[in-house]
Write a protein that binds this DNA or RNA. Structure first.
Lengths: 248, 248
DNA sequence: CAGAATCAAATTGTCAAACAATTGATTGTT
DNA sequence: AACAATCAATTGTTTGACAATTTGATTCTG
């Protein structure tokens, strides 16, 4: 049974201990906010030294499973998973993947269109005035002539963030985090090099109008139109790159 | 400049070093498969001791950003982000959130319906015979009378895994991982306690039929119907819990 | 000369003991 | 009773050493 582990690779003690504690947390043996035994205590329990235990604890801390406090009442405590923490982690993972594992722009655009489209019915039904206002604010910001590329991208991300929050379903907002925070910037990267930012702002504004009218079909049409445009730009960019990218 | 850090909280040296190296990787200063300097080397560069550097490296290892090998040509190397690695990380995050941050079953069911629904057009268009066969295999497994709850749930997860893979868009499959691997089991948890597994299998089978016929509307209808049923069960379960949960 | 066994070197893994820094609790003082 | 100084517990960090593992060069043998 254990031959697999032994044959392949022997995980380090730190890794094993981290896994063991992780199991305890996931199985509910250690409840939220509960304090773990002290590092020295853990060291003797697991039969290793304190630095080894510390490596294991730092692994868990990197995964946001525990937090550490110094001082008299300090120690290592089980973290309560939070939406924002999980959100950040998902964004980090998705961003890394987008940055370092390039893929066809069509694939990216399609994923954005499909998943964002799934949010439209709920967003149209439940959007409140505050959502419309926030989105229109961003559109206004996007229309400023001398806005930097960076600011434009950030504004577009905020726009979409509000859009998914308008669904009033935190689970969907969480699931969409990868799309909003990683995919959308990637598409903006292609797009605003082509100086079509005005068109994007136009689409965003029309999307606001449709949501204000609670017009799901119209909103989907706007989304689809903008996706088509993005796909064309992506195709052109790829073409240019393939033909004579060094031209300019 | 440094007053911010001092005023708020002083992150540990290990944390700072991990962040610094992480930045280097994300900014492309360290390319994939590149070897980091040795631990002793890093220690002197950052002006800390070797165990401190090791804690930082273990943090990065926990995030799958680097891998470590012992021996003469060993060291710490930058990892190439992989779909499966990112997938696993996303699933871990989503599962943790589902397990330890309970939420209304309606919210969960709605998220599943919306996001899975977004996959249907592509799945219907691009599903191959191998997808249909794999899904029908799972349905057959679900119809076995004395299947364990655990096996049924695992089979249902595999069914949905194939479903999202049928979209032939790896980014969507990645984004849907949370839904398939964390949300679906949670709903099964509610559902198969009510012994409606036959009905689930029926729905899954009809879904296969619709996808075989490339009938998007029909597939969405089946999905919607099963979601309604799940919502009812969830409401009943919640009712029972609220009324006299200790009855039985 | 070719190949195999052996040894050396480089690197991470682990340990031990100690000191520093931080923070809450305690105790003493006014 | 209020407040300040001290204390104790705990994590953060350092130093130094040795063990385990892997690779590559070296040396021995046929």
């Amino acid at each position: 049974m254990t031959s697999d582990d032994a044959a392949e690779r022997q995980p380090s003690a730190g890794h094993q201990i981290a896994e063991a504690i992780r199991e305890l947390i996931l199985d509910g043996k250690l409840t939220v906010d509960q304090r773990l035994p002290g590092e020295q205590d853990l060291a003797t329990r697991f039969g290793v030294s304190r630095p080894t235990v510390r490596e294991a604890l730092k692994r868990l801390a990197a995964q946001n499973l525990i937090r550490t406090r110094r001082g008299a009442t300090g120690g290592n405590f089980v973290n309560r998973p939070t939406w924002s923490g999980a959100h950040d982690q998902l964004v980090a993972t998705a961003t890394l993947l987008m940055t370092m594992a390039p893929m066809p722009a069509e694939t990216v655009a399609e994923a954005r269109l499909s998943l964002l489209g799934a949010c439209m019915p709920m967003a149209a039904e439940r959007r409140g005035p505050e959502h419309l206002r926030a989105m229109r604010d961003e559109v206004a910001r996007q229309r400023v002539a001398d806005i930097s590329d960076e600011d434009f991208c950030a504004s577009d991300v905020r726009f979409h963030r509000v859009l998914v929050e308008a669904t009033d379903n935190p689970l969907i907002a969480f699931q969409m985090a990868g799309v909003v925070e990683a995919i959308q910037p990637l598409l903006n990267m292609i797009t605003y090099r082509e100086r079509d930012r005005t068109r994007i702002a136009d689409w965003n504004e029309r999307l606001c109008d449709r949501l204000e009218a609670r017009d799901v079909e119209g909103a989907l049409a706007e989304l689809s139109a903008s996706a088509d445009h993005t796909a064309q730009l992506a195709a052109r960019a790829q073409e240019m790159r393939a033909a004579g990218g060094s031209g300019s």
